[in-house]
Design a binder for these strands. Structure first.
Length: 736
DNA sequence: GGTTTTCACGTTACG
DNA sequence: CGTGAAAACC
């Protein structure tokens, strides 16, 4: 029935071909790294189209805009113009579209604003003030993250306080209730609401659910291991009648559980769809045999794992390089000199290489070394474009012009640039308007009204400043009816004095900030031909929802990429350097006492390793500076899982003779079970002040061992660090 | 109301 | 050590 497969599918292997051609009903594709997953998805869509499904009837959901864009690009190559009709985007953009159209059915205002992280935190702080919860005892961030987690599990405030019902949950529940109220007042939806309220809408209204089911006959979800409960529910609702839901994922690459991704969705999927077809894509096309073998050995010890044997027909290639440096500076220079060698001697270029690490702080030493060596680099991450202060300020102005009742934006910019309306005046304004039961914007209009005889809590100076501000705002609002968006942005920058303020400031990055403003102005020219009033809503929604990772990859410039292990997921490079392969960094110290978190750290290491196509370098430092002080670090347990025969003696250039890198240390590092524990449970020991005791447990700590000893008498059980405790094995123990 | 000083704190980050 | 936010200062 499906003979009309276009040529390019011929090169697909049998599993891939099956995944492409299995059309009706639920489908679970477990796709290992480098298994051609994206290719399968795009071919599947093209194939659907070929057998008569319109692209507009297919929705493909990804987790990042980058992935969506890549998919669209590939599809355009595969099926040309028609690809434009495909709906490819994130769950969030999908949900925003649905709620914009049909959200009113469950009481969502059509002009809702999407609240980003900053706005959320702000509202949380306000909610804590209202509920009189001390931000010193309970960190606003921790509360926000618990609320966010509840929302992604579709739990309301009541459910939160009932379910786990600890004291903390009780507190959070109170803030949560208040926070939702504030969101409502501001016509705001946060990112979690976008998802959970879409679920609510689809569950509540059969009519609306039917509409979207009709509309999207086939739904594909990429990176399924990263879905949270709300996202999975959206997928289920939209495919409820036809059940044409195809999900693609790799449980071994699940590294976002801390962001509420729920790996058990994969299990739920198989339970919810007993008729599901499961296809494993096990052939790796990306990496050399040795690199894949190393990766498999690193991931294998995970207990909670569906074993899934990967293989490759690629040549074995070079062995994996494992190298240690003495300091992080040496680690950085070691990597960079090797990069230079690869370029000079082996024909790689800078863009082929990537340096990846666990925590952002590690990039500092690398950056400094790059500058010293004159190597151009690109630091991925940092403050994202739409999170930058100047961009957020501008957007706040624009949001205010679209909806002057937006209190959050008002607060943000009422004194930016500084116009002598401080916190005190603003608070006064808010409480005054609350008393009058009018929005702050209306209150401002009243202040400006000369004929008004109302009693106002402001002195002459305050009143004057507020009048000036509201006049400015009203002027700009009028301009929004006349000017195109790009011109409006110019007007905002000029009339508010923002630009002047930046130009006069002695901030070193003022010029960068202006560049960013220019960049966003450039984006606004897409809406030329429309009056701002018309284009503002979608421009603003785009800005919050589609924060593209600057204009990555597009150009031909040569630079070295510095990136965290989390952000590198989904990418591949011929040469990968993983630095800081140490206990405490990977696995991270914060993950040490939870086996589940250790498993996630392991997956993170696996993700890093599997990015490499032909060369893999694992680096560690013997001493590492952290929080200003240097301390010894021991090699990551994940290094020990790589069999010796896969490891190569490094020929990395040395920063100095005196600091020659010793491979022997790595090779001779204790392997899996061979950790040389100083004591074992049952050993009789004595301590200078605690006296005689028996060892209960002995476990590894970064650069040390922790020994739990039960001492005789009423000293009791103590947990001691081996290096300090100076425990002595009792004579009675010797020789037995 | 704006500026400087002190203090606490420190993982990862998609939309 | 470096940063961001609150507290103390002008």
């Amino acid at each position: 029935m499906t003979e009309a497969i276009f040529d390019s599918t011929r090169a697909l292997n049998p599993a891939q071909l099956e995944a492409v051609q299995h059309i009706e009903g639920p489908l679970l594709i477990v796709a290992g790294p480098g298994s051609g997953k994206t290719r399968v998805i795009t071919h599947r869509i093209a194939h659907l189209n070929q057998i008569g499904v319109y692209p507009s009837q297919i929705a493909a959901v990804t987790f990042t805009n980058r992935a969506a864009r890549e998919m669209r690009n590939r599809l355009e190559r595969l099926m040309g113009e028609k690809s434009k009709y495909l709906k490819a985007g994130t769950f969030h953009s999908f949900s925003a579209m649905i709620l914009r159209r049909d959200g009113e059915a469950i009481g969502i205002p059509q002009d809702f604003v999407i609240m980003d992280d900053d706005d959320q935190l702000n509202l949380i702080k306000q909610s804590m003030e209202i509920t009189q919860i001390d931000p010193k005892r309970f960190q606003p961030r921790a509360i926000l993250s618990t609320i966010s987690s509840s929302k992604s599990k579709l739990l309301g405030p009541e459910a939160l306080s009932n379910a786990a019902s600890g004291y903390f949950e009780e507190i959070v529940s109170r803030v949560y209730t208040e926070y939702q109220k504030l969101l409502m007042q501001n016509h705001g939806l946060d990112f979690d609401d976008l998802l959970s309220r879409t679920v609510e809408l689809l569950k509540n209204s059969d009519e609306i659910r039917d509409k979207y089911q009709q509309r999207y006959q086939y739904l594909m979800v990429d990176e399924f291991q990263d879905t949270n409960t709300a996202q999975y529910q959206i997928s289920r609702e939209i495919t409820k009648s036809h059940r044409n839901l195809a999900v693609v994922g790799d449980p071994d690459q699940s590294i976002y559980s801390w962001r509420n991704a729920d790996i058990t969705n994969i299990l739920s999927f198989q339970k919810d769809y007993p008729e599901t077809k499961i296809i494993h894509l096990s052939q790796n096309y990306r990496s050399t045999g040795n690199i894949l073998e190393a990766a498999k050995n690193v991931i294998r010890p995970n207990q909670k794992r569906i074993d899934h044997e990967l293989f490759t027909d690629n040549p074995d290639g070079e062995l994996v390089f494992i190298t240690e440096a003495y300091t992080e500076e040496e680690e950085a220079t070691g990597a960079l000199t090797e990069v230079q060698r690869l370029i000079e001697e082996e024909g790689f270029n800078l863009r082929d290489c990537v340096i990846t690490y666990r925590v952002n702080a590690q990039s500092r030493a690398l950056e400094e070394a790059c500058i010293r060596y004159g190597i151009p680099y690109k630091l991925v991450g940092g403050v994202r474009f739409y999170q930058r202060k100047e961009i957020k300020d501008l957007l706040a102005y624009l949001r205010l012009l679209q909806d002057p009742y937006d209190e959050i934006s008002l607060e943000r910019i009422i004194n930016v640039p500084s116009r002598a309306i401080g916190k005190r005046t603003f608070d006064e304004l808010i409480s005054w308007s609350r008393n009058l039961e009018i929005p702050p914007y209306t209150a401002l209009q009243l202040i400006n009204d000369q004929s008004s005889t109302l009693q106002m809590p402001f002195n002459n100076r305050q009143q004057k400043q507020l009048c000036e501000f509201i006049t400015l705002l009203n002027n700009l609002k009028d301009l929004a009816n006349e000017l195109e968006l790009a011109e409006l942005i110019d007007a905002v920058m000029d009339q508010t004095g923002y630009k002047k303020n930046l130009l006069q400031s002695d901030e070193p990055d003022a010029e960068d900030r202006l560049d960013n403003i220019r960049e966003i102005r450039g984006l606004a020219t897409d809406f030329n031909g429309l009056v701002s009033k018309e284009s503002l809503p979608s421009f603003i929604e785009n800005a919050t929802l589609v924060s593209e990772q600057d204009s990555l990859e597009e150009n031909e410039q040569q630079y070295l990429t510095l990136i965290t292990l989390h952000q590198i997921k989904g990418l591949e490079y011929p040469v990968v350097f993983m630095i800081g392969m140490e206990e405490g960094l990977i696995p991270h110290a914060r993950s040490m006492d939870d086996p589940d978190q250790i498993e996630e750290e392991r997956r993170l290491a696996y993700v890093g390793i599997t990015r490499a196509q032909s060369r893999l370098y694992l680096l560690r430092s013997i001493r590492r500076r952290m929080y200003g002080m240097t301390s010894p670090a021991i090699g990551s347990r994940f290094l020990r899982d790589i069999p010796l025969q896969l490891i190569q003696t490094p020929r990395m250039a040395r920063s100095s003779k005196a600091h020659a890198i010793k491979i022997e240390n790595v090779v001779e590092m204790p392997r899996n079970e061979e950790i040389a524990y100083p004591f074992k449970a049952g050993d009789k020991v004595s301590h200078a002040s605690f006296g005689e005791g028996i060892v209960v447990n002995c476990s590894e700590r970064p650069g040390d061992f922790e020994i739990t000893v039960a001492f005789v008498g009423n000293v009791g059980i103590k947990r001691l660090l081996n290096s300090y405790a100076k425990l002595v094995k009792s004579a009675a123990n010797d020789g037995t």
